[in-house]
């Protein structure tokens, strides 16, 4: 029971065969976009976060078919963005597994709330688990970019 759908991913139209029951995460990985990671498949950890129409989305909580007609951006779609650079400079990752999801959430935050205060940053970034770092590194990275935008 599979059929072809067209998704807008990272500025490209991609045709992919899916079961309606396949999540967006599974669909993206089928396209070779393995940056979004399976961590819980339950909407709990945020490792699979991508952006859909500019908002962070846990791609394990969305069906592939729900993304039809929407703009999907994955970590592979970010090129030399300030937040990626900030993660590097601030050592805001260790094992790197949560990193694509964290970066995509940060990217959406920067776009939606370029003037985000501590409370907003916290509220948004609570959605992802990083098991390696202390979060301080990630806080520094995201704040360095938010400040640049001001």
């Amino acid at each position: 029971m599979e059929y072809s759908i067209t998704l807008h991913v990272n500025g490209e139209e991609r045709i992919v065969t899916v079961r309606p029951a396949d999540t967006l995460l599974y669909t993206l990985r089928k396209l070779g976009l393995t940056g979004a990671k399976p961590g819980c498949l339950n909407g709990d950890c945020g490792a699979c976060t991508v952006n859909v129409d500019g908002w962070p989305m846990k791609s394990c909580l969305m069906l592939g078919v729900e993304a039809i007609g929407k703009k999907v951006t994955t970590i592979e779609g970010l090129k030399n963005s300030p937040i990626q650079q900030a993660f590097v400079e601030n050592f805001a990752f260790q094992c790197g597994y949560c990193t694509p999801g964290f970066i995509m959430n940060c990217q959406a935050l920067i776009e939606q709330h370029p003037d985000a205060d501590d409370q907003t940053i916290r509220e948004w970034l609570e959605s992802n688990i990083c098991r390696c770092t202390s979060y301080i590194e990630i806080e520094k990275a995201v704040k360095s970019v938010l400040q640049r935008k001001e």
Binding site: Q84, F87, P100
Partner: peptide, 9 residues
């Protein structure tokens, strides 16, 4: 670093 922030890792 670069691989890990670009999803290439």
């Amino acid at each position: 670093a670069l691989d890990k922030v670009t999803g290439r890792a």
